[in-house]
Every structure is written in C-alpha cells, then in structure tokens.
C-alpha cells in the first residue's frame, strides 16, 4: 500500500482532487470571512451552501445552461444570507440562533423542492459539468502543475478572488471600513462609516460566495443534487475561517488542508485499502477537530463579532 501511495501518479491525482475538494470551502470560507470581519457571525453557511447547491442544480436542470446555474446558485445563497442579515442587523436577533434555525429550514426546503423538481422524471437527473482548461506552461510543472493549473474555470476564479479579496481587505479604504465596522462599530459610525450598509453588503458577499461554493459541489464535483448534499461542509467552512485567521490567504491554505483530508479518504478508498470505509469517511471531521485544537490559541475574533449594533443608543 505504501508503495502505491508514494508514486508521482498517486500524488498528482491526490493533489488534483484536494484542490477540487477545497474549492467549495474556499468560496464559502471567503464569504464568511467578509461577514465575520464586518461583525456578523453567520452560522448559516451550511444553509447558504445548500441553497446555492440546490438553486444552481435547479437552474441548470431546467435551462440546461451551466452559467445560468452558477447565477442561480449565487442568488440562492444570497437570499439565505439576506434573511440572516435582516434578522441580525435590522431586528437584532441572536445571530447564532437565527443561523441554526436557517440551517434546519433550508434543509427542509431544499429537500422538498428537489423532490418536486424531479418528481416527473423517473431517471436520476444528472447534469454535465464544467470542462478542464489547462493553463499553458504552468500545467507542465510536475505534480503541482496538473493539480493547480489543469482545472476548470471556477477553480481559477477562486485564485483570482483570493488575490482580489486580500487587496480589497488590506489595501483599500473600503476594506478598512469593513474591518472597523466589525471591530468597533460605534467608532466607525462616528467617523461617518455607514455601519448598517457595510454589514448588509458583507452579508450579500457572503451569500454570493457561499452560494457559489454550494454550486461547485453540484455543478462540478457531483453533477447532481441530493438531500443534505453539503453534509456539514458549511460548518467545516466555519472552521476554515477560524483556522485561516480570517485572512483570504489563510482561508485558502486552510481550505486546501481540509480538501486534502477529503481527497485522501477518497483516494484511499479508490486504491482499495483494507479498512472499513467509515474510518475514512470520518477523517475530514476528525481533521477539523484536530485543526481547531491547534488554532485555539490566540483568537483573531473581531471585537464586535456577533453583537448587534444599535445606532443611536449612546
């Protein structure tokens, strides 16, 4: 078994699928980073991803167009995030409770809608997925080349997004305002930053990106929607944000680690390892716990994370 694992071919396929597995977490983690940096703790990432996964599937299934599917996923994610935003920004409800309730609600709603959608069709609906595009030169690098530079367009979009987010958050006034709103909304308000507007915008970004992450799950990884297709990935995305210290590059690396855990279990199952599959299925969840334990020291939480802001209660 060990000889099988240390071949270039194994490493290449392993890394390639690690990147693919990481993509939903990169998008969802980035989205949640924006939200948390602005002070909104949205536990409903699972709901956002699930909604994105469903609506992307539904849109593609109905129209036959993958791009419309992506847009459907983004809208689906954004709707959920906006509900959370209204509850936590405007109504000032407990953000955690709202998120948990949304997770349950969307689980039921997507299962119901999926059954209705495919009701008339006895065949299991499968949709065609995005093609791989090799980037010349870069994809010829051994092992790393095929893994990172022979992927589909959404993977490349995630790289671009990581760079843009880093520039945005740390290099622009907008990014600094966002951080200020999450750290000290009162001070931000005093210098004329629109706290509510920024929080709503952050929530929308969270919804769009989380929805995109969910869409990647159905449109690329699986080509099909199932009940509870996210199976905890939204919560793993929350762990990615913590481990990545709410920095886009940190989120990217953390997502890769979790993607690797996921890919590792699939690769081991593929080479027919003599171990009950449950041990392998557990792996990503165990890795999440271990990683959380290691990132426990020195919290990077924004000061006002999860706290509603009341504009004029001075």
């Amino acid at each position: 078994m060990l000889e099988q694992m240390f071949t270039v071919a194994f490493l290449t396929t392993f890394l390639t699928s690690s990147v693919r597995m990481a993509v939903p977490l990169i998008f969802a983690g980035l989205g949640e980073t924006f939200s948390e940096k602005a002070g909104i703790l949205n536990i409903g990432v699972e709901a956002i991803m699930l909604s994105g996964a469903f609506f992307s599937f539904a849109a593609t299934y109905v129209t036959g167009n993958l791009w419309l599917g992506l847009i459907g996923g983004m809208i689906g994610g954004m709707m959920v995030s906006l509900i959370h935003a209204v509850f936590s920004i405007c109504l000032r409800k407990d953000q955690t409770v709202t998120g948990i309730a949304l997770n349950m609600f969307i689980l039921g709603a997507t299962s119901f809608m999926f059954k209705i959608l495919v009701n008339n069709n006895p065949d299991f609906p499968q949709i065609s997925t995005f093609h791989k595009i090799a980037i010349p030169m870069l994809c010829d690098i051994p092992v790393i080349g095929p893994a990172f530079f022979n992927q589909d367009i959404i993977v490349y979009a995630s790289y671009v997004l990581i760079i843009l987010s880093t520039l945005f958050l740390y290099g622009t006034t907008w990014g600094l305002s966002l951080t200020a709103v999450g750290e000290h909304p009162r001070a931000a308000d005093t210098v004329g930053i629109k706290v509510y507007t920024i929080r709503y915008l952050a929530a929308m970004i969270n919804g769009v990106l989380g929805g995109l992450g969910g869409a990647y799950l159905t449109l690329v990884q699986l080509g099909v929607f199932m009940e509870n297709v996210t199976s905890g990935r939204g919560y793993i995305a929350l762990a990615v944000v913590i481990f990545g210290r709410r920095h886009p590059i940190g989120v990217f690396l953390a997502a890769l680690l979790f993607g690797a855990a996921d890919a590792f279990q699939f690769r081991l199952q593929a080479i027919g390892i003599q171990l009950p599959s449950q041990y392998l299925t557990m792996l990503p969840y165990v890795v999440t716990l271990v990683v959380l334990l290691f990132s426990a020291k020195g919290s990077s939480d924004p000061q006002s994370l999860g706290k509603p802001y009341i504009g004029d209660a001075r």
């Binding site: 929350l238 913590i242 969840y285 334990l293 426990a296």
Partner: peptide, 11 residues
Amino acid sequence: FNISEIITTIM
C-alpha cells in the same frame, strides 16, 4: 480552549 461548540458538536 475557547473552541466553538457549534462546529465541534456538528463534527
């Protein structure tokens, strides 16, 4: 360790 119970309990 101040680790979010929401994530750990789900895992």
